[in-house]
Every structure is written in structure tokens, then in C-alpha cells.
């Protein structure tokens, strides 16, 4: 089965000379046509995956909590294009997009959502707890903010081993007020650890807006007291994400943390059972209709004559097939064997 065509290496094709005269993200030519097409496909894969996950949840095939990433796709897809093999990735529980962007198999992710033996965690972790050592994806963490010290520790291990890798540590605006986040930032700055803190500011921590939760709402400034540079990025524009990501990753690789505040938006509720009384329908519609990250790339591709409708339709069909296959697989894989109840509690016991 085809996997997302996400290349772990940054595209090295030179930008056209005009790119330098445009602000980051404003130009449609600061990335190559091939890369833009790959972004389109990867974002669409996440979108379609999440829609299908929502449907399977509605059918009772996915249980518990299920936090969908719809609307935020440009963040992970753009950031993934800036890192290299061996760089580690860690995030919170809104993690399906991160796993797909990291190149994990949609079948294994979907089968974990349905709690099946062929899921990434053998059905024992679920939506919020999946990992892939092969893809250097370290979870999938269910406690708000807990992944931030852990991601900082991954950066510590990179530095200790001298492997020139970085840790991409994602968290949301909700985590941005957690004490342990600042404990970790302090140590990252103190010890010059190669970590990029990507704050996915989707404007609401569950139902509480950033304005009602953070005294300083410019989240990219939250590392100032540790001397950590930060930047606010249009997280709905994958080109802008890539540009800012490259700068941040380079900074981290040279030693020291960097903060990127991605201004993004989730279209769906916090989790599946979210009455969404905290925001207006008009607000959601405005993002969907005017700022959609996938529509944006689609327009760049078509306006730039880098592709045509027929070719995009082909991409849509390919993605749809991958998702259909994943959903089929996830529904027909067996549940874990009862003996799995007792395995993996301890190593070697």
C-alpha cells in the first residue's frame, strides 16, 4: 500500500529568484511545484483520514476520546518538510496528523483507533497513544503538557549522543500554561538543547479561548524569560510554516531551543463529544471558507499552473483509496488476543 510521499529531507531545489523579494508564505514559488503537490497530497491524506475517523467514531467503531486534526494540517506537513531522518517528533493527544505526516502507515493508525491487534500499539494505546520507533515518533501523550519535558529529554539524548538531530516538540495553546512546560524550557535554554517547541495555537484549549487562559496571548513570547527566540507563524499556510520551520530547525541544530507559535484552527470540536458552545458557527465557517490550508495550496497550484484539475482529481482518488483501504483494514483486523492483556507491562517480565 502506498504510504504518504513525505520525504524526510528538505527539498533542495532552489527557489526562483523572485522568491527573495516576497515575504515568507506570500509567494507561491518559494517551494518547488513538486513539493507543493506533495504538501497538497499529504494534507489531503490527513483531512480524509480524520473525516473517516470521525465517521467510524459515529458508527461506534472507535471508542473513548478521539481528537481530530481537521483544519491544522498545514502545521505538521510544513514542519515535517524541514527535518531530516533521525529527528524525533513528539506531540499531545491530537496526534493522528503528526503520525501520518511522519510517514506512519494509515492502516496501522486506523487499526489502533478501532482497537485492533494490527494497530501501532497492538490495540492497547488507542487514539492518544501511538508510537513508531522506526519513524522516530515518540507519541501520542494523553496528559496536557507532559510531552514537553519528554521532548526536551529527547533533545537531551540527541545532544548527549552528538548525532546532530533535533527534537520537534509539539503542544497546544492549552499546554502553554502548564508549569512543566516552563521547567523544560528553562533546562533547554540552560543546556542549549536542540529542540523546537511548536505551539499549535488553535485558539481554544478545549472550550477555553486563549484570551481567557493566558495572561500574555502572544504565545511565541512565552520563552522570553529564558532567552528563547520565538516567532508567530501563519499556521494555515504551509509555505509559511516551512519557511519558519527551516529557520527554527537550523537554529536548534546549531544548539538551543526555538519557539514557533503556529496560528491555526480546528474545525471540529475538542473531541468528538463537544457541543462547541464557546465559539460561533460564523467563526468556524470563516476559517473553513477563507483560510482553509488545503484550498490555499490547491489555489497556489492551479493559479501557478503547476497542475490542473484533472491531476488533482487523480490525487484525490489516490488518497481516497488509501483511506478506504485503511478503514477496511481497521474494521476487519482481529481484536487483540486475550493473552495480550498481560504482555508489555514490563520489559523481560
Amino acid at each position: 500500500m502506498a504510504k504518504p510521499a513525505m520525504k524526510p529531507k528538505v527539498e533542495t531545489s532552489p527557489a526562483k529568484p523572485t522568491a527573495s523579494t516576497k515575504p515568507p508564505g506570500a509567494g507561491d514559488n518559494s517551494v518547488s511545484a513538486d513539493q507543493l503537490k506533495s504538501f497538497y497530497r499529504d494534507m489531503l491524506l490527513i483531512r480524509r483520514f480524520e473525516e473517516r475517523a470521525g465517521q467510524l467514531y459515529g458508527m461506534g467503531l472507535i471508542g473513548g476520546f478521539c481528537h481530530l486534526y481537521i483544519g491544522q494540517e498545514a502545521v505538521v506537513v510544513g514542519m515535517q518538510s524541514t527535518i531530516k531522518l533521525g529527528d524525533s517528533i513528539i506531540t499531545s493527544y491530537r496526534d493522528h496528523g503528526h503520525m501520518l505526516a511522519a510517514g506512519m502507515d494509515p492502516k496501522g493508525v486506523m487499526a489502533e483507533l478501532t482497537g485492533r491487534a494490527s494497530g501501532y500499539s497492538k490495540g492497547k494505546g488507542g487514539s492518544m497513544h501511538m508510537f513508531s520507533r522506526e519513524k522516530h515518533f515518540y507519541g501520542g501523550h494523553g496528559i496536557v503538557g507532559a510531552q514537553v519535558p519528554i521532548g526536551t529529554g529527547l533533545a537531551f539524548a540527541h545532544k548527549y549522543n552528538g548525532n546532530n538531530n533535533v527534537s520537534l516538540t509539539y503542544f497546544g495553546d492549552g499546554s502553554a500554561n502548564q508549569g512543566q512546560v516552563y521547567e523544560a524550557m528553562n533546562m533547554a535554554a540552560l543546556w542549549k538543547l536542540p529542540v523546537i517547541y511548536v505551539i499549535e495555537n488553535n485558539r481554544y484549549g478545549m472550550g477555553t479561548s486563549v484570551e481567557r487562559a493566558s495572561a500574555v496571548t502572544e504565545l511565541y513570547r512565552h520563552g522570553e524569560s529564558f532567552g528563547i527566540p520565538g516567532e508567530r507563524v501563519d499556521g494555515m499556510d504551509v509555505v509559511a510554516v516551512k519557511a519558519a520551520g527551516e529557520k527554527a530547525v537550523e537554529h536548534a541544530r546549531n544548539g538551543g531551543p526555538y519557539i514557533l507559535e503556529m496560528q491555526t484552527y480546528r474545525y471540529r470540536g475538542h473531541s468528538m463529544s463537544d457541543p462547541a458552545k464557546y465559539r460561533t458557527k460564523e467563526e468556524v465557517d470563516k476559517y473553513r471558507n477563507e483560510r482553509d490550508p488545503i484550498d490555499h495550496v490547491r489555489k497556489l497550484l492551479l493559479d501557478g499552473k503547476m497542475t490542473d484539475e484533472a491531476a488533482l482529481k487523480g490525487v484525490d482518488a489516490d488518497v481516497r483509496k488509501i483511506i478506504n483501504d485503511a478503514a477496511e483494514f481497521a474494521q476487519h483486523s482481529p481484536e487483540p488476543d486475550p493473552s495480550e492483556l498481560w504482555t508489555d507491562v514490563l520489559v523481560g517480565a
Partner: peptide, 12 residues
């Protein structure tokens, strides 16, 4: 913070 950092280092 440092307990979590240690856990991350162990994962790594």
C-alpha cells in the same frame, strides 16, 4: 521538569 526530561532521555 527534570523527571520528564529524564523519561524523554530514556525513550531516546
Amino acid at each position: 521538569g527534570f523527571a520528564g526530561l529524564g523519561v524523554g532521555a530514556a525513550f531516546g
